[in-house]
Write a protein that binds this DNA or RNA. Structure first.
Length: 554
RNA sequence: UGGGGUAUAGCCAAGUUGGUAAGGCAGCGGGUUUUGAUCCCGCCAUCCGUAGGUUCGAGUCCUGCUACCCCAGCCA
């Protein structure tokens, strides 16, 4: 069961296998618990694939639970985007979406239970005092003067807190554990604080909100979660997680397991930094194609399957990691290579005129939609005596390594004829404006009859029939592999992360194909962007083709 | 001697009772090719942070050391 045909095993699946074998559980239940305070990113995709993937492979279930205990930072806009992104990734949660706020009433009851057991107290110490009494990493803390308040008084004070009789910061409810614990989170952690904030789910019903550590474990238990999976920074918190479950009256005892969060080179994956990129307009919103958000990847042209494949390839361990961007790119290339129909587009056009082509004539050429998959069929593309070709595909002179069009030499126009460059026309600045060629009318769909070898093949689009297009080419958002380690990460932003080109595409490219986009032969994978208009189509480059020529070139 | 974690190739990562280092990405070499793409073939850790120890035999067990990550929010 650990290793299905879809997913390699990992240490968490091995734990589940043992639990199932030992009869600890009959079925498995997981949850994906985002706080709705930002958009989901590729790091969340790792957690989503882990939690939903386990639920699927073990015939269990996975809840979507919004961990909404801090109304000051959260917004309904985020809960909606999170639902959309989880669905887009191809997963569906068990029943209705859950919210930690669904349990506020019960959470409040458990807090009362702890108070009655003498395991929680209302502390009127200031935050500064609390910090001083907490001690340091190497020195134990000291008890608060409110620590020994009797249960009845604590209950009354907590009721007053709940009734709004105390101001924010005036007091808090603390679990009474151990001020000398080597685990800082066990030194009488705050479990409830006063906050007069409007909540996106509960409105103005509450003015006290439970803290994460108190809420998460109980929410897991209420939902019957068997394996609560989170990232490494919560390892110490597991002691508090278990303490709360042990000290309240609840049957279910979920277990927390931690795995390492994803780090991706040349980008940032922390909510705080992503929010800053958006708010300071370093990017054009959460779905900017350069963003590592699910929305950004989607707009960039990544497919759900490619993101899932990426999550499968990187695995799940407890090791700190920094995954190369090339790993993600390989996943989308593998997907699009087999699924994306081919088309032709010229990003930086220069005019090519075929002087011996019948004046005023044109024809419809047949081109396969995929060179290795006949089932994808053919399309017709218009051809005439005037076409656009890529400026970089022509040189007046070049060495034999340059297998493209050179003055006096021949090259194959992809899906069309062999042409020979005869002369060029330049403007006042010396820029080539037109390349004049002759073509061999006998080379359509076959090699030259006399056995001449034509090695080069270049792409083109018919000048009269082509559609005007804007191409947005993206590069890494940052110039350094680990921008988060910089003094100020925004200083490491790559100023050339977006390059816009104006050119042409073959006619007929309107809707994105099912796979997500096209491969513009010899240039890369592209998808149609929502910024397209009737007069200009806008394409985002999802990823370029592997380019071994670039290495040889220089 | 605060505590909690992690150390296997450039990157990710298998390796579960000790038996002689999977796979993927990247890279390199070759073949096919009307995409310098794809595809195909081959190569790429005498070695598992380090120093010792146990053993016929250790990435796996023991001891010491080192490096890196996390914890002192009324954030999650």
């Amino acid at each position: 069961m650990a290793e299905t045909e879809h997913h390699p095993s990992n240490f968490i699946r091995q734990i589940i296998d043992k639990d199932l074998a030992a009869g600890v559980h009959d079925s498995i239940k997981t949850r994906f618990p985002p706080e709705p305070n930002g958009f989901l990113h590729i790091g969340h995709a790792k957690s989503i694939c882990l939690n939903f993937g386990i639920a699927r492979d073990y015939q269990g279930s996975c809840n979507l639970r919004f961990d909404d205990t801090n109304p000051a930072k959260e917004d309904i806009e985020y809960v909606n985007s999170i639902k959309e992104d989880v669905h887009w990734l191809g997963f569906d949660w068990n029943g209705e979406a859950c919210y930690s706020s669904d349990y506020f009433e019960r959470l409040h009851g458990y807090a009362l239970e702890l108070i009655d057991k003498g395991l929680a107290y209302v502390d009127f110490s200031s935050q500064e005092t609390m910090r001083e009494l907490r001690g340091t990493l190497t020195e134990p803390g000291k008890n608060s003067p409110y620590r020994d308040t009797d249960a009845a008084t604590n209950r009354a004070e907590f009721e007053k807190m709940t009734a709004g009789e105390y101001a924010e910061g005036q007091c808090s409810l603390r679990a009474k554990i151990d001020m000398t614990s080597p685990f800082m989170c066990m030194r009488d952690p705050v479990i409830y604080r006063v906050k007069f904030a409007h909540h996106h789910q509960t409105g103005d019903k509450w003015c006290v909100y439970p803290m994460y550590d108190f809420t998460h474990c109980i929410s897991d238990a209420i939902e019957g979660i068997t394996h609560s999976l989170c990232t490494l920074e919560f390892q110490d918190n597991r002691r508090l997680y278990d303490w709360v479950i042990e000290n309240i009256s609840i049957e279910c005892t979920p277990k927390q397991y931690e795995f390492s969060r994803l780090n991706l080179e040349y980008t940032v994956l922390s909510k705080r930094r992503l929010i800053q990129l958006v708010e300071e307009n370093h990017v054009n919103g959460w779905d900017d194609p350069r963003m590592p958000t699910i929305a950004g990847l989607r707009r960039r042209g990544y497919t759900p399957a490619s993101v899932r494949e990426f999550c499968k390839r990187i695995g799940v361990t407890k090791m700190d990691n920094m995954v190369e961007m090339g790993m993600l790119e390989a996943c989308i290339r593998d997907d699009l290579n087999v699924n994306a129909p081919r088309a032709m587009a010229v990003l930086e056009p220069v005019k090519l005129v075929i002087e011996n082509y019948p004046a005023g004539e044109s024809e419809q050429l047949k081109a396969p939609n995929h060179p290795n998959d006949e089932s994808m069929g053919n399309r017709t593309i218009p051809f005439s005596g005037e076409v656009w070709i890529e400026a970089e595909d022509f040189r007046e002179e070049a060495n034999k390594k340059f297998k493209r069009l050179v003055l006096g030499k021949e090259v194959r126009l992809r899906n069309a004829y062999v042409v020979k460059a005869e002369r060029v026309e330049k403007d006042a600045e010396g820029n080539i404006t037109t390349i004049f060629c002759t073509y061999d009318a006998e080379t359509l769909g076959k090699d030259p009859a006399d056995g001449r070898k034509v090695k080069g093949v270049i792409h083109w689009v018919d000048a009269k029939a082509a559609d005007k297009a804007e191409f947005r080419l993206y590069d890494r958002l940052f110039n350094v592999p680990n921008p988060a380690a910089e003094e100020n990460f925004v200083d490491a932003i790559n100023p050339e992360s977006l390059v816009v080109k104006s050119g042409f595409v073959e006619p007929g490219l309107s809707e994105n194909p099912a796979a997500g986009g096209w491969q513009f032969e010899r240039t890369g994978y592209f998808c149609l962007d929502k910024d397209s208009s009737d007069s200009v189509k806008v394409f985002n480059q999802t990823v370029g083709l592997r380019d071994s020529w670039a290495k040889i070139a220089d």
